[in-house]
Each structure stands twice: as structure tokens, then as C-alpha cells.
Amino acid sequence: MTTSPGIHRSNEPAEVPEELREARATIDNIDAALVHLLAERFRCTKKVGVLKARLDLPPSDPGREDRQVERLRALAEDAGLDPVFAEKFLKFIVEEVIRHHEDIADSLAGEGAPTGA
């Protein structure tokens, strides 16, 4: 059995064909990259949340969110990815970002103080 450099090997039973092992290892590497990209995205959106709270802006920006959905749908279509899936994925992320922005606004405004949102 040969291994490709840079491919993470999982602990698969020996009877799993090599081609399947390699495909799964590639998926594992992509999943790891997605996690790191999401972590970076949330670091950036945290900065946005702090700025919004300081400027007394609402945690949600529906106009921008709508533009982002359209942009992501177009990117998905160009990439051969189901645009409906891409939209659901983005909406899931945006909901979490808004929740984080609400938490940031609450923490900067103090316990129980109105946030202005």
C-alpha cells in the first residue's frame, strides 16, 4: 500500500479499498480546511460585531445579508454547487454571527442595559 504525501490517513479496516481510503482522506483534509476557514471567518465577524456595538448599529443587516445570499448563490452556480444548499449554509452561518453580535452588544452595553438595537 502506498500513501500520498500530505494525505491524512484514518484508522480504516484493512479491507477498505485503497481508492476509498484515499477519497476519504481527501474529504477529511477538506473538512479540516473548512473548520479553519470558518474559524477565521468568525474571528473577522467578531471584529465586525465589536464595531457595530461601538457604533450602536443593529447586529443584523438584512440588506447586506440579502446581497450576500445572491452573491453566494451565483458563486455556487459557477462552481457546480446547489445554490439552494449554499443559501441554507450561508443563512445558518449568518444566524450564528447575528447571535454572536447580539452577545457582543450585550457585553459592551453592560448587564441588563439596553443595546440600542
Rank of each mutant, 00 (worst) to 15 (best):
M1Q: 04
V69R: 15
L37K: 07
D61C: 09
E87P: 00
E70R: 07
G116W: 14
A32S: 01
E40G: 14
S10M: 03
K47D: 07
S10E: 14
L72F: 12
D31A: 14
P5A: 09
T115S: 06
P62R: 13
A23V: 00
G6L: 11
V97G: 07
V48Y: 03
G80V: 02
G116N: 13
E96A: 10
D61V: 02
F89T: 08
P13A: 12
T26E: 12
T115R: 12
D78S: 10
P17W: 04
A109C: 11
E12G: 09
F42H: 04
A74P: 03
A33Q: 10
F42Y: 08
L57K: 13
D106P: 10
G112S: 07
M1A: 08
R54M: 12
A25F: 09
A105T: 02
L38H: 15
D82F: 02
A23P: 02
V94K: 11
V97P: 09
A25M: 12
L108S: 04
K46S: 11
H36V: 08
E111A: 15
A74E: 15
D61I: 07
E102G: 09
S107T: 13
H36W: 06
A105I: 00
I104W: 05
A105Y: 00
H36I: 09
I30F: 13
R99L: 10
P5M: 09
D106S: 14
V35S: 12
F92I: 06
D103G: 10
K91R: 15
G112K: 05
V50C: 07
A53S: 12
V35W: 02
